[in-house]
Amino acid sequence: MRKYWRIYWSFFRTGFIADMEYRANFLFRVVTDTVWYAAQIIGFNVIFTHTKSIAGWDAEKTRVFLGLLFVADAIYMIMLSDNLDKLTDRVRKGELDLLLVKPINSQFIVSLQRVSTSLITNLIMGICFLGYSFAQLPDASVPRLLWLLLMIPCGLVCLYSVRFMISATSVIFTKADNLQFLWHQVYRLGMRPDQIYSRWLRMIVLSVIPVAMIASVPARFVVGPPDWGLAAWTVGWSIFLIWCSSRYWKLALRFYTSASS
């Protein structure tokens, strides 16, 4: 375990050094994401000028939801997004060979080796916005925030596992760009509280395509009393999904070796 922390630290270091090289890009990432955050906030604000609440979410609660979305999305972008988006490319260019021969869990290295440190500013912005919107809640209760320590990681694990399996499919079929592309579209479903969707769609975004796990679920634990059933489901499901992802990766690698030999 210690070994993996050390390795992660060195991924972080190299990521940081590489990112600092491109100053303009760094600054523009910050600008871009500020615009993106602003768009989300403006969008809901405009709608709330015409209506009091959407599916039980009023303006204050929605802001907390957005704050959580920004935080969780920033963590996802820093740690995972780049790796998972590029996995297909790596497979095609044969870079996977180099990673697989290393004496280290290949899923770990494939999923985490590139750290987008330039997005840490996003994380900071997200945390600030979350703090602000939390303070605005009429019934803000600080102990509820402790739930986040459990729910955000579980949500990320769910999201990661499914996203990783999609990327791993590219190891089997080599061309799976389109799956990835559809993923980016479906991801948008997670940018709104899940209660606004119809019953069947909610079931999907809380299970097979767990995009609602990233922000919607943790937000519910902050804005209201804990839903024990949902908590159990989230934890259990995240464990199940990560197990699936590791099984699936092993399966995919079998295809990989047999395909290239």
Partner: peptide, 28 residues
């Protein structure tokens, strides 16, 4: 500047709001 794709993304995101894709502009 190198790696300026960021500018591109920022611009297109801004257009996402300004063009009316995000929301109809007349409800602002």
């Amino acid at each position: 500047l190198t790696r300026i794709q960021g500018i591109s993304v920022a611009k297109n995101l801004a257009l996402w709001i300004f063009s009316g894709e995000l929301l109809p502009l007349d409800i602002f």
